[in-house]
Design a protein around this nucleic acid. Structure first.
Length: 695
DNA sequence: CGTAGTACTA
């Protein structure tokens, strides 16, 4: 009986007897499920399917080689095999792992043992791989025991897979022991160790191990170098990183996209973003990963505008971004307060049905939080089915910085009810919620709870929050004592926090003490001198106030100019205090004057204590009127569409006069105004602010 | 038949 097969490529194969090379026939010529069905049918008709070699080839085609085939089909072939041997089982185990069901791969291995089929070294290798995937350490250990019994324990393949399993499941110590005892290590053994160290973030060990490798003259490959480059990036080890970069040039490996991406990422992480960019430009082929690496490089260097520029180039190059790309892009939008761009990204993510990974969700929420859109952030929060500590923390932080301290604490307690263990960052978020709304007792309790209930050692940031909580609430003396009792030496931020509290509560004595400490720690920070000078001024000690300002000037320290941004129609406008150079000078200053007139008739009284000290008495009013955020708000009032919220972000903290003025503006002009200052948000509406004048 | 890159939170 002649067997004729019709393949799509118009190949006609005729089989008259047992094929000489069934593997070629089945494995290489079957490209689709349809081909496979045909071959399968003919094999049954001709009863060739009873031949174990043929059926195994058929199985391999069905289970592994043709990606579209379902496991059900493969299983139907497998079940018809009379007493399948280990290689048939191996195919099925590999297939299950490949088709994302490693759990079933491990189950099949157990079935195999129950059916008394002797596993071979490949069985062990692929079952262990399945265990690695699902981090089934216990199962892996059992298999390890069976391996030792079987006598395959000394096989290189088996040992390598075991090393990978232990390294991948958090038992890098066991992996290392096996690795050290191994007499015949190959590049896979080394690479398994490297990838284990990557997972556990033991960067130092990677560099040490690589140096050992070089000393021993062991050949390494592309995978080795990618792992080592990652380590160089994290350790900022530019020396080794640069060596690898040169080595690659020598060996002409610069055409390798993955390796080059790793190099670009390494340079960026070492702080050499410009070098990274030059190499990036030299890459002929750039995939999503390469583009994402460059964008995140700029993002981590806080060069957000350039990051968005690269993102733009990426789209021009028709490379489709993925979730990872969007995380960096959103993080840049958050920093810049680029609401329009970020919203566009969110729409894009929805339209392209990108997977809302927990990381992407976190970035999205953080973006809305940093643009002051609390409810949008909450909406993203609700949509996420699986929430981790990071995710909760961002929401808590969002509520805290937007003046909703009670809601922030509630969120924290809900998180605790869901048995999510807070980490150190979560505590920074709740403590800052307490300080923003003046919940002193809650703050104290949480600070204690942190180490008592969760074994978390308070860090500088936590001490800073406590100083802020006490200081803002007017307990300046207590805050001062708290700093003195700190077990670690306070950093400038701690003293600055106290100094700011001294200004709010007019405490000259502690204020002087704070500046004294600040000057030794960080003498060039202009804001500190200004704070103390303000304290003197408010206590009526103008001579001292001027003396501090002169002291600052003598040191050659320049004031950080106030700067406010407003985004209109996706474009960002920047204003500096008393800036005569801005492009819309006349328009802006006229608008500001009109605005000030209208609020004055509504009862606004300028607070000239916020004016520059060196201004003449007559000019003081003009000086406060030209603070950068007043200019930005005035510009927003004439340019933004009626009824829309005006959004300002500024580099310094809001001064008393601007805060007061903005409240009245929101009422007189019937506008919602959101101001993001360097530490928090102010939502102005109908004459009041979300911070309840506590900031 | 075993090993691989890019990401978020104060």
């Amino acid at each position: 009986m002649a067997l004729t097969l019709h393949f799509p490529a118009k190949t006609v194969t005729t089989i008259t007897q047992f094929p000489e090379n069934p593997k070629t026939l089945i494995v290489q010529q079957c490209k689709t499920t349809k081909d496979l069905n045909q071959v399968h049918a003919h094999l049954i008709k001709s009863r060739f399917h009873l031949n174990p070699t043929i059926s195994e080839n058929l199985l391999e085609a069905a289970a592994i080689l043709i990606p579209a085939t379902t496991m059900d089909y493969a299983l139907s072939i497998f079940h018809k095999i009379n007493e399948p041997d280990s290689s048939a089982y191996n195919i099925m185990i590999r297939a299950f792992t490949l088709k994302q069901s490693p759990q079933e791969a491990v189950m099949l291995y157990k079935t195999m043992l129950q059916n008394s089929v002797e596993p071979d070294r490949f069985t062990f290798a692929c079952t262990l791989k399945a265990c690695s995937r699902i981090r089934a350490l216990e199962e892996g250990e059992q298999i390890h025991a069976q391996i030792l019994k079987s006598g395959f324990g000394c096989r290189q393949l088996v040992t390598n897979t075991l090393i990978h399993l232990y390294a991948n499941c958090g038992r890098i110590d066991i992996a290392r022991k096996m690795f050290d005892r191994m007499s015949n290590r190959d590049v896979f053994s080394w690479n398994s160790m490297f990838s284990g160290y990557v997972k556990t973030e033991c960067w130092r060990e990677i560099v040490d191990l690589f140096n050992e490798m070089r000393d021993l003259g062991v050949k390494f490959d592309e995978v080795t170098l990618i792992n080592v480059l990652m380590a160089c990036g994290r350790l900022a080890d530019i020396e080794l990183g640069g060596w690898i970069s040169e080595y690659m040039e020598e060996k002409e490996l610069n055409g390798n996209v993955k390796l080059m991406t790793a190099v670009v990422d390494m340079y960026a992480k070492c702080g050499h973003v410009d070098k990274a960019r030059r190499l990036f430009e030299q890459m002929n082929i750039k995939d999503v990963v390469a583009w994402s690496a460059m964008i995140s490089g700029y993002s981590q260097a806080r060069r957000c505008k350039e990051a968005l520029g690269v993102f733009h180039d990426m789209q021009m190059a028709n490379v489709v971004p993925n979730e990872v790309t969007m995380v960096s892009v959103l993080s840049c939008c958050a920093v810049l307060g680029a609401l329009e761009t970020g919203k566009w990204v969110h729409l894009y993510v929805k339209k392209k049905r990108m997977e809302l990974t927990i990381t992407l969700g976190t970035a999205l929420m953080d973006f809305y939080a940093k643009c002051g859109l609390i409810e949008n952030a909450v909406e993203v929060f609700k949509k996420m089915p699986l929430k981790n500590v990071f995710f909760w923390t961002v929401l808590i932080q969002c509520l805290a910085s937007n003046g909703q301290g009670e809601r922030a604490l509630e969120t924290y307690y809900i998180m605790r009810e869901k048995n999510i263990e807070p980490n150190d960052v979560a505590f920074i978020a709740v403590l800052s919620a307490c300080s923003h709304v003046g919940m002193v007792d809650e703050g104290r309790e949480l600070f204690v709870s942190m180490s008592r209930d969760f074994d978390l050692e308070p860090r500088m940031e936590h001490y800073g929050c406590m100083v802020d909580i006490l200081g803002r609430a007017g307990l300046v003396e207590e805050a001062y004592q708290f700093i003195k009792n700190m077990p670690i030496p306070p950093n400038p931020v701690i003293w600055r926090t106290l100094l700011a509290a001294c200004r709010a509560h007019k405490n000259v004595k502690v204020g002087e003490e704070s500046l004294k400490n600040l000057v030794t720690l960080e003498p060039m920070h202009s804001g500190d001198y200004i704070l103390l000078s303000d304290i003197y001024a408010s206590a009526g000690r103008c001579e001292d106030a001027l003396r501090v300002m002169n002291q600052m000037r003598e040191q050659g320290i320049k004031k950080t100019p106030g700067c406010s941004l407003i985004e209109l129609d996706g474009e960002i406008y920047e204003f500096l205090a008393e800036d005569n150079m801005c492009p819309h000078f006349k328009e802006v200053y006229d608008a500001t004057e009109n605005m000030m007139k209208r609020i004055k008739s509504a009862g606004y009284v300028p607070n000239t204590a916020d004016a520059r000290l060196d201004a003449e008495e007559d000019d003081k009013e003009a000086s406060v009127a030209h603070h950068s955020e007043k200019l930005a708000i005035a510009f927003g009032l004439i340019r933004a569409s009626p009824g829309t919220t005006i959004r300002i972000s500024k580099n310094l903290r809001v001064c008393t006069d601007c805060h007061n003025a903005t409240k009245i503006i929101s009422k007189v002009f019937n506008r919602e105004i959101v101001v993001r200052d360097r530490t928090r948000f102010h939502h102005f509406k109908e004459g009041s602010c979300s911070c309840n004048d506590y900031w």
